[in-house]
Amino acid sequence: MATKDKNSWDPEIVVFACNWCSYAGADTAGVSRIQHQPHFRMIRVMCSGRIQPAFVLRAFERGADGVLVSGCHIGECHYIFGNERAIEQFEKTMSIVKMLGIEEQRLRLEWISSAEGARFAEVINEFTEQIRELGPSPFGRKRSPAKAGKGVAG
């Protein structure tokens, strides 16, 4: 699908992260100065259970080339079972995403703990590379600047 050289563009990736694990894991990567790909932006929520289909679909709608949903490892949720709810929400989102014809590799669920700074960096690098391989999202801004989404609501 990607006709252009995969390094000739920079993907735009939204990362939804739980405050207690993956967001903290990204901070840990920072404290340890573990360099990783800079093409993602984090949106912090208190629990991965908060990450509903609407967030992910909106990210794609606005032009995300990839969306990463991240939470605590199963059994380690700060709120007991929030991450298990996140799985349910994620699966529902994934079925819609696939139906819309968006490559399923553009959406990913990862469990990253607050201590796993290196793993956070690894996941980001790997996901970024995967999105590069796929090329720009058909809804992405890099596809055609004229099609960029409209301004902020409210």
């Binding site: 509903q52 289909p53 609407a54 967030f55 679909l57 909106r58 794609f60 709608e61 819609i96 696939k98 139906m99 819309l100 014809g101 968006i102 058909p138 809804f139 596809r143 099609k147 409209k150 301004g151 609501a153 409210g154």
Partner: peptide, 27 residues
Amino acid sequence: TTQPECPHGGALQSTMRLMANGGTQQD
């Protein structure tokens, strides 16, 4: 530039707009 706060967080409207944008082969 006012938009309603739709049920389901606007997930359905996003789905529709993604279709409106096109460019993919739906499954």
